[in-house]
Design a protein around this nucleic acid. Sequence first.
DNA 1: TTGTAAGCGTTATCAA
DNA 2: TTGATAACGCTTACAA
Lengths: 335, 335
Amino acid sequence: MVSIKEVAEEAGVSTATVSRVLSSSDHVRPELRQRVMEAVEKLQYRPNLVARSLRSQQSNTIGLIVSDIRNPFFTSISRAVEDSAYKQGFSVLLCNTDEDPEKEKIYLQLMRDTNVAGVIFSPTRQIMSDLASLPFDFPMVIVDRSVPDVDVDTVLLDNVESAYRLTSHLISNGFRRIGALFGETSTTGIQRQRGYEEALKAHGIPLVPEYIKHLQPRVEASYKIATSMLQLPHAPDALLTSNSLIMEGALQALRACNLSIPEDIALVGFDETPWTLLVQPAITIIAQPTDEIGKTAADLLFQRIAIPTRPTRQIILKGQLMVRGSSTPLHLKAM
Amino acid sequence: MVSIKEVAEEAGVSTATVSRVLSSSDHVRPELRQRVMEAVEKLQYRPNLVARSLRSQQSNTIGLIVSDIRNPFFTSISRAVEDSAYKQGFSVLLCNTDEDPEKEKIYLQLMRDTNVAGVIFSPTRQIMSDLASLPFDFPMVIVDRSVPDVDVDTVLLDNVESAYRLTSHLISNGFRRIGALFGETSTTGIQRQRGYEEALKAHGIPLVPEYIKHLQPRVEASYKIATSMLQLPHAPDALLTSNSLIMEGALQALRACNLSIPEDIALVGFDETPWTLLVQPAITIIAQPTDEIGKTAADLLFQRIAIPTRPTRQIILKGQLMVRGSSTPLHLKAM
DNA sequence: TTGTAAGCGTTATCAA
DNA sequence: TTGATAACGCTTACAA
């Protein structure tokens, strides 16, 4: 492994000069610069980024901490983040927490220990109290979830509003007994529940506790809970799900119960996935602008890395209601 | 940021002793060990991994280089790799190449520059010739694709055999005009094509060049190519797709053409995705054991990191044919 | 504009 | 068993 020292010797200059040519825009005589470049080329020199990072106390790596990369929402976010990072010359450390606060802590510590430039994080509710107290000195951007009492950059969907619109859509299409499945680990589920409840209230529809469930945001959990909800004496005529994994489990449950959508029951949810348009009928959803969320989070992070004292921002993006067959109005059902 | 020096002072020992207590199993007097641990605890000391990596010339990071994390196959692989890495105390640098050889090179260089412990890589065909010549000294495991002339650990599906079985399944169900869409960037597509062609030959069915297409493994490309194939004068009565993105585009095309599956045309492919069981009819596929592939790749890598001279291995895993409604026999179609 | 030399925070060598 | 001390490969004052 050729080092900066050998390049310096080859070019007949000091290591400082090589370093200047390579990383700073310091004034170096063109002739020397040329000699250095040639030596670099000849020896196929590549700077050791570990040494550079140790010395300069900076790094070109950012951390991305999400609950599960297999959740299509996070898959998409990750891709967008990696893309932005690549363009800025950064690379991405991927961390899955499985919504486990212990894993979250371990990964946050790792971020500190490896001296990353910054972190994009989608935290559970449990970790939040710690978040303020733990001494995390690196730049951080929160995505998808909100951290109420901490002054930190955040990129969020307008969850209350989106859930409100989704629920209102069901109501105006004639559905009244709207079962709802929310993720229990994040603030997102809570906010979406608020939107759901506000919509019901606004339309004078009573809340039915049996219709509201909180669960781990996983396919299997959702399948179970949805199945049991479908077996209620007075079963729902519509199901609202608060993320795509939950929606997947719910759809499996509907299929297992041989229920027709939307004739027997409507199904709506959040997030565009490869299959929302492929199943029949297609599923009505709130599409989150995942690319933009990821890109915005990365942008915020790079800005904070550049200017650590910058005032924090909370960016709230709008979801888009995509009306499809799975929530067709009751009076059209016979058609 | 508290350093080893401060811990040493606090404990009244040298930095060497602190280092020994923390990272090596060297013999340290229990009493000193105790004092060091207390100092570590008191000062909340955490070793700086960058410095450690620079000095020891090792690291606890592995690279994962895939074409696109949004491909459900790679999503699942990534999750499995990250899981295994976490258990071994490693973290994962995620890199998307978009099947672009230039990006592959850049990322491979990054791996070298950051001194990663090793890399799990799914290369394009183009990069392979370079792979032998480029001086990549780090441990590497190839997944999903094969690199014929390089002595490197590999984890693969039995692609020829799997495609053979999938094609034979279609044939024995009465389909004869089997269109096939293969990814053009990987060896995987080529091998699956071989299995497809061998199955046709074995059953005395002539190859029709118009029925065989190579394309970028992307949804949009697949949609276009599939659509044009469906408009052939003598259109296929079945479509075989060589990965889930291609399958997705093909299914979109079938839907756009208002074709019924399997009455008008059968559809089969590779990879279990969230939707293969949710669409109706469910799709017949070869399921790859993605968890096992990822886990095996990580295991191989850690073994090679531990013993660099270990003889290389090629591990070939079997796919599982999941027969579903999308390839129901012709004589049952009327039912 | 360039070179010398002092670190960055560890670990590894060598003596004690 | 322990402690000085020299690296690891780079950047950056400071001097020249």
